[in-house]
Nucleic acid binder design. Structure first.
Ligand SMILES: [Mn+2]
Ligand SMILES: [Mn+2]
Ligand SMILES: [Zn+2]
Ligand SMILES: [Zn+2]
Lengths: 145, 145
DNA sequence: CGTGAAAATGAAAATCATATTCAAATTCAA
DNA sequence: TTGAATTTGAATATGATTTTCATTTTCACG
């Protein structure tokens, strides 16, 4: 069975919160885990619909929120106004190409450390952050060889 | 005359782009420059209305966009879904308190340099970025003395 | 297995910030 | 002064997401 671990995680979360294990939730989790990258709600909905033509958009929205709460998905909102989801994995930030939409992940312990020092200097306790670099990727640069 | 320099900047921009110097634009610029911090469209509109009860919300939106284009204002969108404007000044990033809404500005040459190196490593040309730290300010921390 | 209370679903309608439309008013170069 | 171009503001549209609510489904318990 594919995505067995994640389905068990979801089931555990549902039980823990007295929520119900529906076929829609399992189906959306399956489609989400099979998709790659940073997927929009709309694309996710379309892919869900290919296999389950009766699942509503509302249920997709609600289920993705649930998957985020369960720690299986992460919600991202870049500057184009639509919400994207990615399979939850360790913290990272993003490079976003404003021409082709490519999204590259990066992480930098030094930046993280420095930003926390800055925050501390201001008496701030950082709970989360977003660090997004917008520009042109290698393929979209004018001066690309 | 207050804000003389900025009014001249606006006039120059308008002339340069064959746009018209209206009393609404001047009024909105005045109110905007008199406001402090990172002001939402709604608050700005309310403050404009106090002095000019006939100026429409639409005109405020359009004028703020214009002031951004003219380099007098900067648009910011933090995670609460509303657009804010601040008087344009040199590049900086933000600490945002999710309890009281306080916004603190910071800048760090090392972070800027490091992020550009990361981007370059990926073949990326960075055109703009956002680096926002969300958390609790000194006054809102649970463990504040 | 049934049962029923609680939860979930999906279609439609609501929200909410912002954008667009359009007729009337204003600006400003000539 | 004038009239073509621009701007204004009220109303309406937009578009992503959320809420509503009647109906359906789940599942703990008997
Ligand atoms: Mn990512
Ligand atoms: Mn600022
Ligand atoms: Zn690209
Ligand atoms: Zn605070």
């Amino acid at each position: 069975m594919v995505h067995e671990v994640e389905h068990r995680t979801l089931t555990a979360y549902l039980e823990e919160h007295s929520l119900k294990n529906t076929k829609q939730r399992a189906a959306i989790l399956d489609v989400f885990l099979s998709a790659t990258g940073h997927i929009t709600s709309e694309v996710l909905f379309q892919q869900v619909r290919e296999q389950h033509s009766n699942i509503g958009y509302t249920t997709v929205y609600r289920t993705m929120k649930l998957l985020c709460d369960a720690g299986l998905a992460s919600e991202r909102r870049f500057d184009d106004g639509v919400t994207r989801f990615e399979i939850a994995h360790e913290h990272h930030d993003h490079l976003v190409c404003t021409r082709c939409g490519k999204i590259i992940e990066f992480e930098c312990a030094m930046i993280e450390k420095t930003q926390n020092e800055i925050a501390e200097r201001h008496g701030f306790r950082v709970l989360r952050h977003r660090h997004e670099l917008y520009g042109h990727c290698r393929d979209c640069r004018e001066d690309s060889p």
